[in-house]
Amino acid sequence: MSTAQSGATKRRTAATTPEPPPADEQRQRKKSRPPSATGRENRAGLAFVTPTFVVVLVVVILPILWTVLLAFQNAKLVDIQDMGLLGNWTLDNFTQVFSSAGFWSSLSTTLVYTVGATLGSVVLGLIAALALRTPFRGRGLLRGAMLLPYVAPVVAVAFVWEVALSPQYGIVNEWGRSLFGWDDPIAFLSTREYEVGLLGAHFDIPLALLTVIAFETWRYFPFAFLFILARLQAVPGGLEEAAKVDGATPLQRFRHILLPQLMPVMALLCVLRFIMTFNKFDDVYLLTNGGAGTEVAAVRVYDFLTSRYDVGAAAAQALVLAAVLMVLLGLYFKFFGKKVQEES
């Protein structure tokens, strides 16, 4: 956008600057060419952007504003038919949300889930991009196959995981027993805490939560992989060659040459994935129904909405979730935003 525009201005100034033309020619030029050119472009721009703007306004922005209203209203689905847009003001929804059992634990679950899945998918995406950077036989094929988890429908892949991890007929438990000698089948998706013994010490790990994090990592690492690989292939080869000649080891070349180049895109991916995962509903709902310590906040919104038909409370819960997300993003940009910009 900027190049095209600056190009246009440059041409215009180049045409006018050389020498001040005689007065009447100047007047002529004024007549033949714009005040109207920019005005016309302005009008055309507004004309083109208006339909899109209206659609976004009607289907996205107005509904979100309505969420804000609903959050402060006493709104149940049954009486919504005859309820006006305004009125019935109350703060009950928020007290209900904050005081309801499990609100704070669901918030911390959401955070753990989001951070784990975001880091997991970006790091695995990075590793995959590095491994597939140089050509080998079958790279194209693998590259295509690696996008499968990302493009496949969530319902289908969630079932595959559910069946594969099942304690009764799942392949994972079957192999775990025959290869690793597991005594009992492990119920990956319904075990809140799993006791592990390591070097004589026993501690509990939140198994179901870790499993949904693994699922999310698996499903979204291809997305990170795509972006990181694209950036990786734009890194000038000369830089690395030079470092190689200077005797830098592969690790040093990665740390000092590749990583700084990849940092901006990885930071962007982290922000994107964080936002998307923070509000994720389907994955957890399909795998565990929000049980066994995996109740993320988005699942609670759904529960308020469908099992209690409490529209106001659902709106309040969604709003609180969005507010927490905004605060976190604000903090992120305050502390890291500048740094990322400098590095890019």
């Binding site: 309505w66 709003l319 997300l325």
Partner: peptide, 13 residues
Amino acid sequence: FPATLLAVPLFVM
């Protein structure tokens, strides 16, 4: 914008 914010009003609407 998160889809959860959209879910409630669209559902009601």
